[in-house]
Design a protein around this nucleic acid. Structure first.
Length: 567
RNA sequence: GGCCCCAUCGUCUAGUCAGGUCUAGGACAUCAGGUUUUCAUCCUGAGAACAGGGGUUCGAAUCCCCUUGGGGUCACCA
């Protein structure tokens, strides 16, 4: 495979600093990196994995999952990232709240591929901490959808693994422990504010056009009082204590360094009143527990990552690498939604999209192949994909191109495999035998876009179709008389044919054309409608052969009656 | 609205990091031809883009700044 060196964006985007570098200047006893966000000085090696400057949080450990990256200098060069193919532990964490989402497949594809490329592991974690939106059947649907796509996982709720359970609702003790640890260290606190008060607060803030967020009422509650109230059973949540000043920074591997002022970060709820964790806590705790090395997720999480960074810091854990992939978009560029676009993986399956086509398409939504060959399978994708080449644009989900790709992949499958697929996915007409399917398939393959079309396109073969309309039997340059003559001649000629095969049929039709001095459409169009009752049928000679002599003759008779108006 | 992200044909993108080889390449779609009995496949061709403005430079799609536009996010949802 052709290798290319083609990183995107300024160098500073693609670098990763650990610890301080020579661009960092001491600032009030701490280190502060003076580089501009996007780097006024393009020679600056860029972002820092760990914050140098915040409100007194200790620097983070330098070991952890990244030891194996083999950094020898303080600042990593891009090359390190490119060549870092040490085993990755990655995950997806879908939420069982509805139909399996196409975005899940999109993110899963990149994660799964990166794990395979590096000989690492791909984990499935079920993010079921929202008990109000939870749907019991949704979890199974997620499994089924991923199985259908051919994306398998090394560890998961159904498979177990060294860190089980993998269902977050079953890990609440762990989150509680971590929350307690954070309360004790002062990086989190209990909040007893009612939801009513909070929504009033939000309304007021909206009116005042003030920044939305918690006002800190319970932030400085006396520790003993807080514990006593909690012990007495008073309802409360646990909130992250965000530093009042300073900033939080991290490096996104495809976007570069992201810096957010701490005053912009809300005191996020970590544990809800019902005792379940929010995404933010559960996600970080589990990623730590599972030894996740790369957090590759949708862009919508980018802005909550600083919160996560603060949680990692509070728990004194090293950060994973963050990669935020662009959101799939509706035509109007908004985040893809079921109101404006099909998003259920079940829908794509029911429509008869091939898993290869969907995956191929999804890959193209976030990445482009080095060789401009856009039709590929998973194996080729695995050879060519590089995690750092994921693009940053906002890809509009283009069904037209998906359809094209599906057709391409249909034509890439050999007839046997395609027949298997039709069978597995339930697209065969009732009672169709394997022999029949293999007989008819080659005639329709190059016309099919979605598998669901199969039944309609082959109805004339498996059943007696509705008789053709009279006007359909008369081609543009023909008349009722000419069509009648054509059908009669064909019926006579074909009735005598023996053997009844392609070459004999062809010469029979040719001789009819010749002896009558007819143009082809004059004979072929009436025949086509007589036999299939549709305009876009396969090659006529194939149709005649596959239908067999008896059926052909009876349908010709029927069409002749239609023409004569006797049927 | 605040903050964050993003910005090349209608759409997906290559090119941007290391500025010149870019009169900007490919794919889908569109249009026009060809093959053909229809539809389709296949083949050939055409039109179609660096958001705008400054700067740096001999030279900018590429580096810097500003503007504009789009998106995301601001939940006891994920």
């Amino acid at each position: 495979m052709a290798h290319r060196a083609r990183p995107r964006g300024p160098l500073s985007h693609r670098l990763e600093g650990f610890g301080r570098c020579r661009w960092c200047q001491p600032d009030g006893g701490r280190f502060r990196c003076r580089s501009l966000h996007r780097g006024a000085d393009s020679s600056h090696p860029g972002g820092h994995q760990f914050r140098h400057q915040d409100s007194g949080r200790p620097g983070q450990p330098r070991d952890g999952p990244f030891r194996s990256l083999g950094r020898s200098s303080a600042c990593r060069s891009k090359g390190d990232l490119v060549m870092n193919r040490s085993p990755a532990r990655v995950r997806i964490a879908p939420s069982p709240t509805g139909d399996p989402h196409v975005g899940t497949a999109y993110v899963a594809l990149f994660n799964w591929t990166h794990a395979r490329q590096t000989g690492g592991q791909f984990l499935l974690r079920i993010d079921d901490t929202d008990r109000t939106r939870y749907q019991a059947e949704s979890e199974d649907k997620i499994y089924r959808a991923l199985h259908w796509l051919g994306i398998d996982w090394d560890e998961g709720p159904d498979k177990g693994g060294p860190h089980q359970p993998y269902r977050q609702s079953e890990r609440c003790d762990l989150y509680q422990q971590r929350a307690t640890q954070m309360i004790e260290s002062g990086s989190a606190y209990r909040c007893f504010c009612s939801q009513d008060r909070l929504s009033q607060l939000r309304e007021q803030q909206k009116q005042d056009k003030a920044r939305l967020g918690y006002d800190g009422t319970c932030r400085d509650l006396d520790t003993e009082e807080s514990s006593a109230r909690a012990a007495a059973g008073e309802a409360h949540v646990v909130r992250l204590r965000t530093p009042e000043d300073g900033e939080t920074r991290f490096t996104d591997q495809i976007r570069g360094e992201i810096v957010v002022d701490n005053c912009e970060i809300d005191d996020q709820v970590l544990v809800k009143t019902d005792g379940y964790p929010t995404y933010h806590l559960a996600n970080v705790v589990d990623d730590i527990e599972f030894g996740i090395t790369h957090v590759l997720r949708a862009e919508e999480w980018l802005i909550s990552t600083p919160k996560h960074v603060l949680i990692y810091a509070a728990l004194e854990q090293p950060l994973p690498l963050f990669i935020h992939v662009p959101l799939l978009r509706n035509v109007d560029k908004s985040k893809i939604s079921k109101r404006k676009n099909p998003v259920s993986l079940e829908w794509f399956r029911e429509q008869g999209f091939l898993r290869e086509a969907l995956l191929n398409f999804l890959a193209l939504m976030g990445w482009s192949p080095p060789d401009e060959e856009e039709v590929f399978d998973l194996q080729r994708f695995e050879e060519a994909f590089r995690i750092e080449d994921i693009s940053t644009g906002a890809p509009v989900f283009d069904m037209v191109k998906l359809d094209w790709l599906n057709g391409m992949h249909i034509r890439r499958l050999d007839p046997g495999a395609l027949a298997d697929r039709l069978e597995q996915e339930g697209f065969l007409p009732e009672g169709a035998s394997r022999h029949q399917v293999e007989q008819i398939l080659p005639l329709v393959t190059e016309r099919m876009v979605r598998l669901c079309e199969f039944t309609d396109r082959t109805r004339w073969f498996f059943t007696e179709p509705e008789p053709p309309a009279r006007e359909d039997l008369i081609p543009k340059k023909g008349t009722a008389e000419s069509s009648n003559e054509a059908l009669q001649a064909a019926a006579r000629g074909l009735a005598e044919l023996k053997p009844f095969d392609k070459s004999s049929i062809e010469s029979c039709l040719n001789s009819i054309l010749e002896s009558n001095q007819w143009k082809k459409p004059l004979l072929f169009m009436p025949l086509r409608f007589a036999l299939t009752s549709r305009k876009d049928s396969p090659e006529l000679i194939d149709v005649i052969e596959v239908l067999g002599q008896d059926t052909v003759l009876s349908r010709l008779d029927r069409a002749i009656s239609v023409l004569a108006g006797t049927q």
